[in-house]
Simulated assay, not measured.
Amino acid sequence: MPTSTTTQHPNPVLRTAPAAPTEAAAYFRASLRFHADVADVAAALATTRTPGTPGDPGFVLLDSRSTESWDQGHIPGAVHLPTALIPEQAEALLDKSVPVVTYCWGPGCNGATRAALALAELGYQVKEMLGGFEYWVREGFAYETWQGPERRDADPLSAPVAGPCGC
């Protein structure tokens, strides 16, 4: 009987085995300590703007981009502090007892990570908003430009068209 000479190619997803459940739980729990997503940030900010609800989301949202980028569009209520100015200006603008959530352009940019690092090194509690300004706009949340408020329809490839996403 002939023998097969074909080589089995391993499944690329399982080429490296998944972590043990306890390791995975520790990793994902830690990840949530460092990151917030756009929808959660929007929900927290929306409840603070709803009459009859507390007025403080419990964190400061910080846009770490340049002034030109801020003018092009930013999240309402965010504090503008470009990353390069954090060492000199953070203490005048931010309270170390209040957590800070940083954002920059989007997933292709690590500006929010650099801002979060700079703030952490100064003693601030900090998280990074995953997706940045790009996903804020793509998910259909309102934003402001130098010309005033704007909003786009949600991108159906990044946010549900109707109803909650269920995550």
Rank of each mutant, 00 (worst) to 15 (best):
I86R: 03
L93G: 03
G73T: 07
L117S: 15
G132I: 02
L119D: 11
L62A: 08
G163F: 02
V13P: 00
A84H: 10
T50A: 15
Y135F: 03
P2Q: 04
P76H: 13
T7Y: 13
H74Q: 05
L93T: 04
P164W: 08
A154W: 00
E134W: 12
D40V: 10
N11L: 12
S158T: 14
E68A: 05
C109A: 13
A162G: 10
P10A: 08
Q89S: 10
R114D: 13
D37M: 01
Q72E: 15
Q147W: 07
Y135P: 03
S4L: 11
A42V: 00
S4Q: 04
P54E: 15
D71Q: 13
Y124H: 06
M129G: 10
P99A: 10
D37W: 15
R65I: 08
G106E: 09
P164R: 14
R29S: 13
F141S: 02
T16V: 14
T22N: 01
R49E: 12
Y103H: 13
A118T: 08
G132D: 03
P76E: 08
I86M: 03
C104A: 15
E88I: 02
E134K: 14
V126L: 04
L62T: 00
R138V: 06
L62R: 02
T50M: 12
C165I: 12
R114Y: 05
Q89H: 10
L94C: 00
Y124S: 03
V137D: 09
P87S: 07
T47F: 04
Y143A: 06
S66K: 06
H80Y: 09
A159K: 00
G131L: 06
G131H: 06
T7V: 15
A162K: 08
A20N: 03
C165E: 15
Q147S: 02
R151C: 07
T47R: 11
S69G: 05
E91I: 13
W70P: 09
A30K: 00
P21A: 00
L32F: 02
G131R: 03
K96P: 12
P57F: 05
D63N: 05
L130T: 15
D153E: 14
T5R: 13
G132V: 01
P51W: 03
M129A: 09
L122I: 07
T83A: 15
W136E: 11
N11T: 14
